Amino acid sequence: MVAVAAVAGLRFLTDRYDRTVSREQLLDPAARQDDTDLGGPLNYLLVGSDRRPGDTNPAQRSDSILIVHVPAGLRRAYLISVPRDLLVDIPPGGNGYGGGQDKINAAYEHGGGGQGGARLLSATLSRLTGLRFDGAALVDFAGFRTVIDLLGGVRMCVDTEVRSIHTGAVFTPGCHQMDGRQALDYVRQRYDLPGGDYDRQHHQQQLLRAMLDRAGQTNLRGNPVKLDQVLRAVGGSLTVDTNGVPLEELLLAVRDLPADGLVGVQVPSFPQTIDEVSYVVLDNGGNGLFTALRDERVAGWAAANARWISTL
């Protein structure tokens, strides 16, 4: 009876959450997995922006691009941050874009932002990596401020002092409890950091881990009211494409993924100036990362490429 009640409660909350999430076809047909197997491996595309996903203004670029790779067994997830300035071949898009070389975050703009932008970005990434995706989400990171505040803030560890170019606030080395405004401000910084945008990518990965840690610490499952508030706030910050998989089934499949099972990965690459424009270019074609993703050998690749792996 307890198990039945738990499942019934989860379905009730999932239904409420499901109604708050916007749904769109975010994946280009060429980038979409034909049939998602929830036993894994799974590959999801997360596109973050400071603007709401429903904003149709075409003059916008994706602020954050992550590939989430979950190997079979669903006990680990690799958060692969794609450099926003990575030089790539962008295919023609439905917004009248004829295709060409550009920074990868421009694909979202060339596609018209929103659904069209996500489709062109997914097609670009699929061409680059050889992956097909099991789903995608447009994430309003600014909207996550409410989620973080509902969780009571998150603990973020600052490794290098940095002054915010947005607020002037100074983040000093050490671990600090941050509210939503502070945490989101911190993870947007990249100037005056030793690793520049690579450090920003790492900090965004850290924030996702910190949010999962905090969710576990606050015992959300034992507080249905708080859980409902958090789920609805998360749902209001997302536009999703689950590739036809019911959201309830997806949540059930990944519910036991531990927070310490998250691994941060950076794409092997380096900065380069081309015709007086700053880009990031792949290091030796990505140093085998994309092949490892396709062949389900990421754990071995990570062990052999510690330089590009970060502890979250």
Rank of each mutant, 00 (worst) to 15 (best):
C157G: 04
R155N: 15
T172L: 04
D159P: 00
M156F: 01
G168I: 11
D179P: 15
A169C: 01
V158E: 01
G168H: 11
R155F: 05
M178G: 13
F171V: 05
P173G: 07
A183Q: 08
G153A: 09
A183H: 13
V158T: 05
F171L: 11
I165S: 14
C175P: 07
R163A: 12
M178A: 11
G168V: 09
T172Q: 11
D159S: 10
G168W: 03
G180H: 07
R181M: 09
T172I: 00
G168L: 07
Q177W: 14
G153D: 09
V162Y: 03
M178F: 14
C157M: 05
R155Q: 15
M178W: 03
C157I: 02
M178Q: 15
Q177A: 13
R155W: 13
P173I: 02
V170I: 14
G174A: 10
D179A: 08
H176P: 00
H166Q: 15
F171C: 08
G180M: 03
H176W: 12
R163Q: 14
R155I: 04
G174C: 08
A183L: 10
V158M: 02
G180T: 04
V154F: 08
R163K: 15
D179I: 10
D159K: 13
E161K: 03
Q177V: 14
G174N: 04
V154I: 12
P173D: 07
G174M: 09
H166W: 10
G153E: 05
I165W: 05
E161D: 02
S164Y: 03
G153W: 10
R163M: 08
T167A: 13
M156G: 00
M156P: 01
C175Q: 06
H166F: 15
G180C: 10
S164I: 12
A183C: 13
M156W: 01
R181C: 00
V154Y: 11
V162G: 05
D159I: 02
V170P: 02
H166N: 13
R181H: 12
A169E: 15
T167R: 08
V154G: 02
G168D: 08
V158D: 02
I165F: 07
A169W: 05
G168S: 07
I165Y: 09
T160I: 01
H166P: 00
G180F: 10
M178T: 06
T172P: 00
R181Y: 10
M178C: 12
I165Q: 13
Q177P: 01
G153Y: 10
G174F: 09
V170G: 02
T172D: 01
I165D: 14
A169G: 03
D179W: 07
T160C: 00
R155P: 02
M178Y: 09
F171A: 04
V162P: 03
M156T: 00
R181D: 15
V162H: 05
H166D: 10
A169I: 06
R155E: 15
F171Q: 05
G153R: 14
F171P: 06
A169K: 15
